[in-house]
């Protein structure tokens, strides 16, 4: 079994979540791997790779005092994972427009059909209550090239949504 676990954690944002959770894990002898942590809608969210010989139950116990104190909700799961598996994305897609139901489903289904593999997606709802704007930033691999993507995204644009497809040209020096 892999020694890697994925910690998923969420709770109302307040100072100290990251420091206290990572300290508890460090003190329990865990190593940390890659992570994505961000504030979403006033909540703080963590996805964190944790390497440990401890079981999921033992890891839960290690962070339980912090989870209780800070009123968080968390879970560990065993994962098949290793470090140094980065793939380099070749395309960046920005989608934005007046927020309406179905933007994400339509855009990402179009991307899927065009052979696009999403590696990273961040989205925000900006604007205000009366006029929300949806902004989505995607990076990934265009397996069938960018033309198929452009065609797929034309369908999304018809609905007044703005879409930019930009190649990511990585400079290795």
């Amino acid at each position: 079994m892999s020694e890697w676990k994925m910690l998923t954690l969420v709770g109302q944002d307040k100072p100290g979540i990251v420091a206290k959770i990572t300290t508890a894990l460090f003190e329990a002898g865990s190593q940390l791997g890659e992570a994505s942590m961000m504030r979403l809608g006033g909540n703080f969210t963590i996805m964190l790779m944790v390497k440990s010989e401890q079981s999921v139950e033992q890891l839960n116990q290690s962070i339980e005092p912090v989870v209780k104190e800070m009123q968080l909700s968390s879970s560990f799961q065993s994962i098949e994972a290793s470090l140094h598996q980065h793939e380099i994305p070749d395309t960046r897609i920005t989608v934005y427009g007046a927020d309406r139901p179905g933007i994400v489903a339509k855009a990402t289904s179009g991307l899927l059909d065009a052979g696009f593999n999403i590696m990273d997606l961040e989205s925000d709802v900006a604007g205000d209550e009366a006029n929300p704007i949806y902004i989505m930033h995607i990076e990934g691999l265009a397996v069938h090239g960018s033309e198929a993507l452009e065609r797929a995204m034309e369908q999304i644009k018809i609905n007044g949504v703005h879409v930019d497809v930009t190649p990511i040209d990585v400079m290795i020096g």
Binding site: H84, H86, I88, I168, D169, V170, M171, I172, G173
Partner: peptide
């Protein structure tokens, strides 16, 4: 986007 031969596996 940049990468570097002196910093493998990261861009």
């Amino acid at each position: 986007r940049e990468g570097c031969m002196s910093v493998p596996d990261y861009t």
